[in-house]
Nucleic acid binder design. Structure first.
Lengths: 233, 233
DNA sequence: TAGTGGTCTAGACCACCGC
DNA sequence: CGGTGGTCTAGACCACTAG
């Protein structure tokens, strides 16, 4: 009762990408070359590549080849920032402020994050859209996965792009829990809103290629000119 | 430049299901029988069936066969009612009250719903969880797609189950837009909450097999003992 | 044991891309 | 033009289910 060949191929390729053997944006070997390399048929290599594309780990296009997915600000927003205008357009926020701290992790953070880190970075940011305050985000990430993060100021708009480019850590999925809430200080004043303004509070666990939880994020969202958009299937 | 064979097979099968030729829960012909029937190879029939499973239209299991997906209260909730307890358990609500009206559609409703119906049913319901008020839902559906709906009281907990069983209308996807809000009357009193309680307001467009928008739904959600759960990919 | 889906192979041909 | 992924076929064998 061993694992199917194509799953072994998938795991091999994921490992190679996580190890930096195939770099973001680079082309993978063709179906035939991979098949020869791994001693499987072209059809089996193909099945593995198709599944990797479904998972969002590679992108394939006819005539060109198969490429390791690159996190860009655009696709990072598209996948992980689901605010849309009433007309359905993507909301592209601006960064108003950033604050990075190093601190000891809480017990809950240790229990959720990969490797139960003792120290974490806490990145707090305020975003605006069309010059209106939009949301307040706090990201918690293990210090050992992202050494030197605090010296990389100013941090880019999309953290996940940095994670991939500087740390070979590719965020590919996340789970979010939304609750309704009322703004309180100090977040209310950071967002320049009255205390008591209704908000959506989103608590996220983000996972990388190897399904490790690499980030906890809490986003406090004003939904004046936009709404949180979801596809249910 | 014609459509690939396997897509033609997919469309044929979807049409047959929508026509009631293959009924909910019934077994489809085997891969070989379908292949012979439609003059394609078994591999092509297989590819079509696998895609239909990905879309949630059929379910396959080794040794048993391929079956048309049946909407049950359980899987309907699982797919389309994303509230979870803090421990991650599915929230299974109870119905507290139901109110069905027939009325003329608004201009916006006509523009969104399939076939721009002039008359619609408006189904308003209050749900509870563990004897606490949970949410208030208003479903708008075209009267001509669901004739006699108002005479089917009491309506079941899960409307989509009824849609499939009584009207061969299978809801398979939906889009939701969430905003933050404050409870106002009359919904506040229906939910036995104070005016001003923070809520999530979810506006949904639900689509059936043929990708027709068959329902508009507005749900006003209290998130005291549960949260709205989302997977991002 | 017969029938189903799941895996794997080998090979053909097509459509698209870039040089 | 050569190389890529996309479609399609034919056939073999395995794993699971049910009678």
């Amino acid at each position: 009762m061993t694992e199917p060949l194509y799953k072994q191929v998938i795991n091999t390729l994921i490992q190679r990408i996580a190890d930096g053997e195939y770099l973001p944006g680079s082309m993978l070997p063709s179906e035939f070359d991979l098949a020869a390399d791994l001693n499987v048929s072209q059809g089996t290599a193909r099945k593995a590549l198709v599944e990797l594309e479904l998972k969002g780990i590679v992108q394939r296009s006819q005539g060109k080849g198969t490429f390791v997915t690159v996190r860009t600000p655009e696709n990072s927003l598209f996948h992980f920032f689901r605010l849309r205008t009433p007309q359905g357009q993507q909301v592209t926020p601006e960064l108003l402020s950033t604050d990075v701290k190093i601190r000891a992790s809480s017990k809950e953070e240790r229990s959720l994050l990969f490797n139960a880190p003792k120290k974490v970075f806490e990145v707090s940011r305020v975003r605006t859209f069309k010059n209106q305050p939009l949301c307040h985000e706090t990201s918690i990430v293990p210090i050992d996965l992202f050494p030197g993060l605090h010296e990389r100021c100013p941090l880019p708009n999309a953290l996940y792009v940095l994670f991939q480019q500087a740390y070979s850590c590719v965020v590919i999925s996340a789970e979010e829990n939304l609750t309704a809430g009322l703004l309180e200080d100090p977040v209310a004043s950071l967002l320049q809103q009255k205390v008591g303004t209704p908000v959506i509070v989103a608590r996220r666990q983000a996972r990388d290629l190897l399904e490790r939880v690499v980030e906890l994020r809490t986003t406090t969202i004003l939904t004046h000119g936009s709404s949180y958009n979801i596809d249910l299937r």
